[in-house]
Design a protein around this nucleic acid. Structure first.
Lengths: 229, 229
DNA sequence: GTCTATAACGCGATAGAC
DNA sequence: GTCTATCGCGTTATAGAC
């Protein structure tokens, strides 16, 4: 067995098991057992269990951000107006079209992403936002253009709501799909969930703002300086 | 130290630690250490770690479901039509009005709820859905009446999206509030987030459905035998 | 490079003294 | 009721044979 074969088999097995059980609940024994490689192989090739988790994450996020950057830049180059709906579609497509070895890749990625944002110490979040700063700014720029009627505060919160719905639903998609399957026999692949998500998010993000007081501040002046940076 | 004191100290510590690290990542040694009680106390008072997890949940969820049940039943008794917006408001109010020991309670609970669904803690999800079955059915009944235009599949997914947006945003509300504070100095208490969430969710849930194909199936026959297995 | 064997440790749980 | 001590197990990680 060549070295790269071993590495890939470990990554494949780890991805599936992480998705099924969670990270802490998956042992290196289970991973190496499923992969048919030696127990010591993980530490030899990756150094530690945490490094393996990061490697699983990296194998997905790299092609994803590449997909996203290319499609966003293409849209900008053609100088087209990108509607919110189209922007969400581009995002979803970039996610779904990551060449994946199993249908577990996306759930694992989403679970890690959710953890990264949810964990009280935002180390991972800061790391990600720094590493993929350019893609993030590109997306936010297009989002701003697609939702000019929103205050920056509203836009901020709705981004969070979107991230929550996305990570939560996709990371538990297995469990949810099985519930739904009990109900009506239909399966729910990632593409199906995305099809359901896009209109929901589109309507939610474009919703009319909160009617009276925005938060704790008095009624907003009509000319908002938009310098919330 | 009285017995009830010990039990409460354990619950308080466990709540915080679970929310910070997750369930599997928190050991009984950490919990009892932080609580200043003996290691054996958890097994003595609760029986097992899983039972402790459920007890932490129960302490918050009991008043919440009581709130919710009462307000939903009151609405039904008055025979009023409950709009989606109003239904979401009732839900939010039931959440926010749980008498809390600290302002961290709600974020902690939301994070625990998210973890319960996300960290494949099957025992917890089943426990919750069984224990609070009647409240869940009551809410779903009103939701069905408030959204008659949705197919049950659409309604199912949008419930999940709602749960995701809710748990994700509320559980990281601390971190998010601090980000936003950097931006514009405003604070974001739970009530403020809820004010932002309700119109978002309302519009998202009421969004027009996915236009063409429902999922992966070709144009559906009008009488589906529902045996797509 | 890959394996076996095992070190070193932390875990949940419990028996039994107080 | 509460505590100490410890059991039995599973874990990650590694040293050293092949």
């Amino acid at each position: 067995m060549t070295q790269s074969e071993t590495v890939e088999r470990i990554l494949d097995s780890a991805e599936v098991l992480f998705a099924e059980r969670g990270f802490a609940e998956t042992s290196l024994r289970q991973i190496t057992g499923k992969a048919g490689v030696n127990l010591a192989a993980v530490n030899y090739h990756f150094g530690s269990k945490n490094a393996l988790i990061q490697a699983v994450f990296a194998r997905f996020i790299e092609p994803f951000t590449r997909n996203l950057r290319e499609s966003l830049q293409a849209a900008i180059a053609k100088n087209e107006h990108v509607s919110l709906d189209r922007l969400l579609r581009l995002l979803a497509t970039a996610l779904v079209e990551v060449p994946s070895r199993s249908d577990k890749s996306l759930p694992v990625f989403m679970r890690l992403l959710g953890l990264a944002y949810t964990q009280s110490q935002g180390h991972l979040r800061k790391y990600l936002e720094q590493r993929y700063n350019s893609e993030l700014r590109l997306f936010m720029k297009l989002l701003r253009q697609a939702t000019p009627q929103l205050s920056s505060e509203e836009r901020f919160w709705r981004m969070q709501f979107m991230l929550g719905a996305l990570t939560f639903t996709m990371s538990s998609s297995e469990a949810l799909a099985s519930i739904l399957q009990d109900k009506n026999g239909a399966d729910a692949p990632a593409e199906g969930i995305v099809d359901q998500l896009v209109p929901f998010l589109s309507a939610g993000i474009n919703a009319p703002g909160v009617p009276s007081v925005p938060l704790s501040s008095p009624p907003p002046p009509l000319e908002t300086p938009c310098t919330a940076s």
